[in-house]
Amino acid sequence: MITVKDLHKTFHTPDGDLQVLKGVSDHIEKGEKVVIVGPSGSGKSTFLRCMNLLETPTSGEVWFEDKLVNDKKSDIDKIRMQMGMVFQHFNLFPHKTIMQNITLAPTKLKLMSKEEASEKALQLLKRVGLVEKADAYPAQLSGGQKQRIAIVRALAMNPKVMLFDEPTSALDPEMVGEVLQVMSELAESGMTMAVVTHEMGFAREIADRVLFMHDGLILEQAPPSEFFGNPQNPRLQDFLAKVL
């Protein structure tokens, strides 16, 4: 479903060039759940953000189904409609109610009528247990509730794949569970997912494959049992020793 070939990304900063991705390749199957872990600064968020072109790769290819994502000729907006994204800082629209947050994109992009979008939104809100917040504004919600709404907002577009960029890192510890719960249910429903996270328990539980990134490269990838039970790369062993 998503294929990445020899991805490089260099940021040009006033202090000089910063090479964040140094040749990353991977293939994510339909229905697969891939969890990406690694120390901060390893390039895992950048890797994820290259998939829907929030960051433009310096070189390399990103394919989504049969379309080259980082091609000037491809309609990136069309591709993004099929790729949901959830951010660390939620990024809900503060001037819109929860309902408007969810229905804005589907209606403005003419994918659904207003009624269809509201119906879909209510159905999804029911799934995450937040129907009663439909008319509230984001400022009235807790962090965990905001992130669940952000997930619903992405799902309302009927995406084929969901990208999660550290979805629980900005949450108070007691709210992490409710968000992971929603993500687990989503995983069970068969959604294709790519998740950047520090939640090792979650990775072990839902991942089909765990990637370890370090210094701009994927150093190891394996099913969770192997990944956590029998890590090969010394860097990964070192990393796991610190976080587990």
Binding site: N52, L54, D77, R80, F87, N91, A105, K108, L109, A154
Partner: peptide
């Protein structure tokens, strides 16, 4: 307005 707002909008497919 924070950059994340633009990213959220664009990630949903809005131009």
């Amino acid at each position: 307005v924070s950059r994340g707002q633009t990213e959220a909008g664009r990630s949903l497919g809005l131009n």
